[in-house]
Design a protein around this nucleic acid. Sequence first.
DNA 1: ACCAGGATGGTAGTAACTATCAATTTGGGG
DNA 2: CCCCAAATTGATAGTTACTACCATCCTGGT
Lengths: 200, 200
Amino acid sequence: MDGRPSTLREQRRAETQRVIQTHAVRLFVERGYDGTTVNDVAEAAGVSPMTVYRHFPTKEDLVLVDQNGPLVADRVAATPAGQPLVHRIGGALVESARALTAGDDRFLLARLRLMISTPALRARHLDNHHVLQQAIVDGLGDEAADPDTAFRAAVAASACLAAMHTALVRWATEDGRGDLPDLISEAFAAAFGDAAPRPR
Amino acid sequence: MDGRPSTLREQRRAETQRVIQTHAVRLFVERGYDGTTVNDVAEAAGVSPMTVYRHFPTKEDLVLVDQNGPLVADRVAATPAGQPLVHRIGGALVESARALTAGDDRFLLARLRLMISTPALRARHLDNHHVLQQAIVDGLGDEAADPDTAFRAAVAASACLAAMHTALVRWATEDGRGDLPDLISEAFAAAFGDAAPRPR
DNA sequence: ACCAGGATGGTAGTAACTATCAATTTGGGG
DNA sequence: CCCCAAATTGATAGTTACTACCATCCTGGT
C-alpha cells in the first residue's frame, strides 16, 4: 500500500508527529502521565489540541506509536519452514530487538518505563501483541491454512511475545544496561528450553 | 486479610455488585459496550451512577471484575517443585479452567466475547495477566529467590498465560462448544511441546 | 501562478471519571 | 428492643479525554 514516506507532505507529517511525541514523552517523564493533559502537550509542541488528536487518536498513542512498521511478521515469514514455530518467531523477535537497540536507547527506554509504570499504557501495549500475533499468523500464509495449525501458530506467537515482553520489562528495570537481544534469547530458553522441541 | 464475605454487610455488598454487573453485561451485549453509558447501567440496576462508580472504579471493571479470587497462584505453589515450571503452571491453569467452566457457562462466555471484541476491555484483561504473573512468582517463595530464577519464572508464567489466553479466544469464538481445559492443554502442547523439556 | 486537497484551528458537545458534602440505612452490642 | 457508629448511598459541580462540524490556511504538483 504505502511504503516509507515518499512525498514531501508525508515527510512533514512524520516530522510534526515526531515533534509532538518527543514533547509528550518529555512531559510525561517530568510530570507523570496522569499529571499531564493533552492540552499541555499541545502547548509544549506549539500546536493546537486538535492537531494532537489528529496525529494521535488517543493519549496513549503519544507513547505507544512506533514509526517502525510491522516488520516482525515479515521476518518470521522469511524463516525456513522446517523449524519449530517458537524458534522461528523467537529468532525474528531477537533480530528485531537488535535493530531497535542499535540507535539511541534513551527515547526507547523512557517510553518503556512509562509503559511499565502506567496501567493504561501497559494494557494498550500488551494489546498490541494481538495485532502482531495476527500479522505473524497471517504472514505464514498457506503454512497455517487449516484452523488447527493456525491455532498452534497463534499460541506460539502469543507465548513468544509474552516471553519477549517479560524480557523487555527486565531490561527497562535494569535501565537498559544488559544486552536486550541476549535477554530475550535467555527468556526464550527459559520458556521453551534450550534444545529445540523435536518436530514430529 | 479478608476471606469470603462473612458479615451480612459484605454479603449485601457482594449482592448489589452482582446485580449491577449482571445488568451491565446484559446491556453491553444488547447495545454494545461503547453504546452503553455508565448512567444507563445505573438506571437499569436501579441505583445512582455514584453507586456504580463506588463498586466498579472503571467502566471496564463492570465486565472484568471476577469474584473468584487469585487461586491460580496457590495452585502453582502447591505443585511439586521438581517439574519444569511451564508444566506446573500449565497444570494449575487447566485445573482453574475446569473449575471455572463447571457451573453456568453463559455469563462467562458473554463476558469473554465482550473482552475479545472491545479493545479497551481486551487490553485491561491482558494487563490482569501482569497481576497473576506476579502472584505466581511470589507464590514460589524461596524457589525463586535470586533475580535470575525469578526472571525465568516470570517468563514461564507470562508465556503460559498468553497461551491460555489464545485458547480462551478460540473457545469463545467457537461459542464454548469445545472443552476449555482440553483446549488449554492443546495450547500448552503447541507452545512447549508434548514432552517435558528436561530439567538441568 | 494556480488551485485542489490536505493540514490546522475554533467551537460546542458527550461521557468517563473525581471530590466533596449531605442524607439515609444498617446491624451488632447494651 | 433500641441506639449509635459506621457504612452505604445520593446530589452537585468540576476536570479531562475525545468527537463532530465547519471555516481557514497552507502546500505542492501540474
